[in-house]
Design a protein around this nucleic acid. Structure first.
Lengths: 340, 340
DNA sequence: ATGAAAGCGCTAACAG
DNA sequence: CTGTTAGCGCTTTCAT
């Protein structure tokens, strides 16, 4: 209506023409260089505004070979612990003036590697992998191209790779200690499949029971980290001749499923049976649930992971690092002394 | 160790040289053109593989003026309804071979518009706005540049704008009808502030009460769509001389807070008091909560939104559309007849 | 079927 | 301070 009806978006060239200067000067001015006269700067800014000029980030990236973009791969968009890490990472990335390109393989390994490839084609400058199941070889080959940080998966090392995890051994020990302290001995465990964190938690459970001389009370029901899985695992346990007085679940979601099973059996939590989860997802804090749990510093993990990336991007010389954060007991309302 | 120690990534030019053909032919071959001889194609693919060639998406975008990227702005990464919509959108975008660029203003309007601007600089071909609070003028100006779809916010129209929402009026009516059907008359409402969906739900609550001749029983406590807000609002109501027999909360999270308040007061849900939420977030399905609620088709909204975008991108001629999906009652365990 | 040449919009020396 | 000259890596006519 008002401006030149030129169909295509205005380029730096159009701005230059309108301001009566050269392309380069426009480029400088628009990026706030100090060596541009006030007069030119004003003219350029005016022209840009009038034209509704918007820089083309692709062209800029191509020219200066920096995409200012970090790629994030999240295994699952719906598992609540992942968005929490994402949120921590995202805010750091934004503070540094970078962009976030998000992909998700959605539990499909083939899809996942295709998505990862696209990230690299986009010339991301750093890669954050939030996934429980990535082969070390895949990660290493990605890291050969671009600085990479892996969250939640330990033991992956290699040039260009950092990891940020939380200490599952310590966390599981804290959980067990909490139950021991309350006086429990008949403690059962709802396991979580073959993914690394779940395996560690189960192992520590067994070790701690043995160390406490309770080897014969060890009781593990197989869960799958879902609500339903926790429900079913707990149902099984509660029909035992000698049901446990406490349950340590491999994650919060299955712990909440276990709570439902207890209700079904007419057991009150924590009066009749104690339950402790793992993860510290936000919903556990809901007053209705008030789940005692071992909280991982999820947001912090995201933040730290992103910062590791920028350490490398900003040329700080860093050795590959495995950062292990300590989880924390949130003693809420689902654990107490056993009924005797 | 094995290949040319050339520091920089191989380009199409390197591949061409190695295969003994021209750049153009490599470009054609790699994109699967049929007019490339088998011999050339083999040589090119071999060379590309040996070099570990990876196309540069920025350069491609610049050259053919298509970024193959959709930008998504999510107001909050932590409100569970947003990731669910994101997930629906994301999978459609991926199926079409596009990428997702995610930004979030995190409740800060200034930040939000800066992030939106970055999305445009990245030459996104379409924009999805998942936010409860975006000025119509902002949306219109964005839509002037690129096809735009708005989720959860009604009433924004303009050239290039589609909206996908769910029918809050109908949903709220269903909620009220459900409670009426159960025989409730002393129905209270926990409101949710000034954002559009919450306002609609409250209005319908009032209308329905009046229409049922229950105007004098109208009782609204102000919540803020948080768990804590729901808790406090419900506490207030329960200390009334004549407490309600049912509560309609503006969203699930505050409904769950209300459940906690009921527990505090020694009231059993649903035996002593019924509670119905709104949204259909995944956690409401947890057996421990079993929250009756009005479910919005969140994933579907994401999918549909993305599809609207592609309708435009693929040149299908479409008029601007406001798609309204119907929500659905999930009658779970928190509602029943009043105690009398 | 293949190559040469001309950009895409921007940044980056390098001269003045 | 400002303009000129070269690209960045890829796609795309247009010839051959």
């Amino acid at each position: 209506m008002s401006e030149k009806p030129s169909d295509k978006r205005p380029t730096i060239h159009d701005v230059a023409a309108r301001a009566g200067v050269s392309k380069s000067l426009v480029s400088l001015a628009l990026r706030g260089s100090s060596k541009v006269s006030d007069a030119s700067r004003d003219a350029i800014e005016k022209a840009a505004a009038e034209l509704g000029y918007r820089a083309n980030a692709q062209a800029r990236s191509l020219a200066d070979r920096r995409s200012r973009t970090i790629g994030i791969n999240m295994a699952e968009l719906d598992n609540p612990i992942f968005p929490q890490m994402l949120s921590g990472a995202h805010s750091v990335i934004r503070e540094r003036g970078y962009n976030t390109m998000l992909v998700s393989g959605e539990r499909d390994p083939e899809l996942e590697s295709a998505e990862l490839a696209k990230l690299l084609e986009f010339q991301v400058e750093g890669l954050m992998l939030i996934s429980h199941r990535l082969p070390a070889t895949t990660v290493r080959s990605l890291a050969a191209d671009v600085p990479t940080v892996v969250l939640t998966l330990r033991g992956i090392t290699g040039p260009g790779i950092d990891t940020v995890t939380s200490n599952d051994e310590a966390g599981a020990r804290i959980a067990m200690q909490h139950l021991f302290d309350r006086g429990h001995t008949k403690i059962a465990h709802i396991s979580g499949g073959t993914l690394e964190p779940a395996v560690v938690r189960e192992r520590v459970y067994r070790e701690q029971m043995e160390a406490a001389g309770l080897a014969q009370l060890i009781r593990v029901a197989t869960g799958d980290l879902t609500n339903q899985g926790g429900l079913e695992a707990a149902r099984l346990m509660l029909t035992d001749s000698e049901p446990p007085t406490a349950i340590f679940a491999s994650n919060d979601i299955s712990a909440i499923g276990a709570m439902a099973a207890c209700q079904e059996h007419g057991l009150r939590v924590p009066d009749d049976i104690s339950i402790i989860g793992y993860d510290g997802v936000a919903l556990g804090a809901l007053r209705t649930l008030s789940l005692t749990t071992i909280a991982q510093p999820l947001t912090e993990m995201g933040r730290l992971g992103a910062e590791r990336l920028f350490d490398r991007l900003e040329g700080r010389k860093v050795k590959d690092r495995s950062i292990v954060l300590e989880p924390e007991l949130l003693a809420r309302g689902t654990t107490s002394e056993p009924r005797t």
